[in-house]
Design a protein around this nucleic acid. Structure first.
Lengths: 245, 245
DNA sequence: CTACTGTTTCTCTCATATCGAACAGTGTTC
DNA sequence: GAACACTGTTCGATATGAGAGAAACAGTAG
């Protein structure tokens, strides 16, 4: 059913995961699509500017795809509330903050706020997808999930062996109120996150990142993050109460 | 050729332009697609999370579409250079700055920087598409286009009558080095923009926005913007020189 | 309860997208 | 400089997916 549409989407996903533009042949072999079929789909995608054709007939994600994707943030009414909160966190602490939601076993970063000081910004993490269990925001979102939903968001799918360590860590996160990531994702950078409960959207979390060896006190930072997260949950609650009223 | 793929893309475009989620019937009639076919395509899009299904079986842009769209910024190496420059502008002037590129007759906003002070952020303009001739960034990008390319980026497509006023304004923009928008797009807000020339990417511009009636002097602001824009052009030049070397 | 709007699922027919193979550019290698 | 390997493109025959209508189903309003 609807194979060509699914193939077009797979092409978009493949190209979004690749940091370099890919030529037709590479795309066709990666996805097991005959070259001629891939060619037709690529032409359709490029004609609508969902793909861009680079100098050497390679394809990368186009402007229209960006435009369409940006509409997701607009439709997600939560983000409008989240951004000011992140800005507040970043201003108070002087470090980068971000907001992510859970999608299957991954955490997807929706938005972030950088401190004004930094000369060179890191590669923008917005739109990044990482396994939830290796990120602070992911663990924060996982920790407060009801037990019956949790399995669906763990990579092992409920296997006992691998999950034991994770379950223990999530229990610890629940106990102290925030999650920690000491260089698991990017070595040398610590992330601290706390959960955000949105009645309408899925489970999510906000977090901050800073270099290990900074003078910042982890407990103090965590207090700020937890404070912001709980206020955010509160705001999101009133938001939906208005929408449903 | 490839109708179902094109239809899927049109559905995405339609939903990205709508601020509310749309039900199947509305989508089908808007795009002249038989309901049963639309249903199949929507299922395919939703199964890959390019669309989200809301409470009342309505569809809106999904998380995966956002993720894919964000990849466009990552592939656009210009943005990494632009963001710090915008941050500098916003810090110096204390007002919102943004970067947009020309796409056909429209200007599409790629990124922006908000000043830290503002309590409530305006609806994020990132991903917005506006007619180039009614925006400061659009006019700045248009003004320095070679004559033979300009027609393709004007809505009237080269008709003399309507273009006369625009051509005069673009000449004025070229003369003083920056473009101005006094409430044309949003009443009460002035935008000032200057062109950015990227050897690899298309024509673009950076600009700033602030409320009319502010104490800021337009000439002083324009000087900052033009300064940033020319430095940006310089940086982008060295960037591609490295890439091709 | 009934009428109505909208969604979902069938079915069947016919158009059409898919596929493999052959063609045509481009740069590389010996 | 010629043959080669690598691309992207084109072109028909076939199978697959799209089109159209009807009908079952759910929710809402009269």
């Amino acid at each position: 059913m609807s194979t060509s549409v699914l193939r077009a989407l797979k092409i978009l996903e493949l190209l979004s995961g690749s940091d370099k533009p890919l030529p037709l042949t590479r795309i066709a072999e990666q996805l097991d699509i005959p070259k001629s079929t891939a060619h037709a789909i690529l032409r359709a995608l490029a004609s609508r500017e969902f793909l861009e054709v680079t100098e050497h007939a390679s394809y990368s994600i186009g402007l229209r795809a960006f435009e369409v994707g940006a509409a997701h943030l607009r439709s997600n009414n939560a983000v409008d509330i989240v951004i000011p909160q992140l800005a507040g966190l970043t201003k108070e602490l002087g470090i980068t903050s971000h907001y992510a939601v859970l999608d299957g076993t991954d955490a997807v970063y929706l938005c972030k706020q950088d401190p004004p000081g930094l000369g060179i910004k890191l590669a923008s993490s917005v739109g990044a997808r990482l396994p939830a269990v290796v990120t602070a925001v992911g663990k924060a979102a996982l920790a407060w999930l009801p037990g019956n939903e949790l399995a669906a968001h763990l990579p092992s799918g409920g296997e006992v062996g691998r999950d034991v360590g994770i379950m223990a860590e999530l229990a610890q996160v629940r106990e102290r109120g925030y999650s920690l990531d000491d260089g698991e994702t990017a070595s040398g950078v610590r992330c601290i996150a706390a959960p955000v409960f949105s009645p309408s959207g899925g489970p999510g979390a906000i977090g901050v990142s800073y270099m290990l060896g900074s003078t910042l006190d982890a407990d103090a930072v965590a207090a700020h993050v937890m404070n912001s997260a709980s206020r955010l949950t509160q705001l999101l609650g009133t938001l939906t109460r208005k929408a449903t009223a």
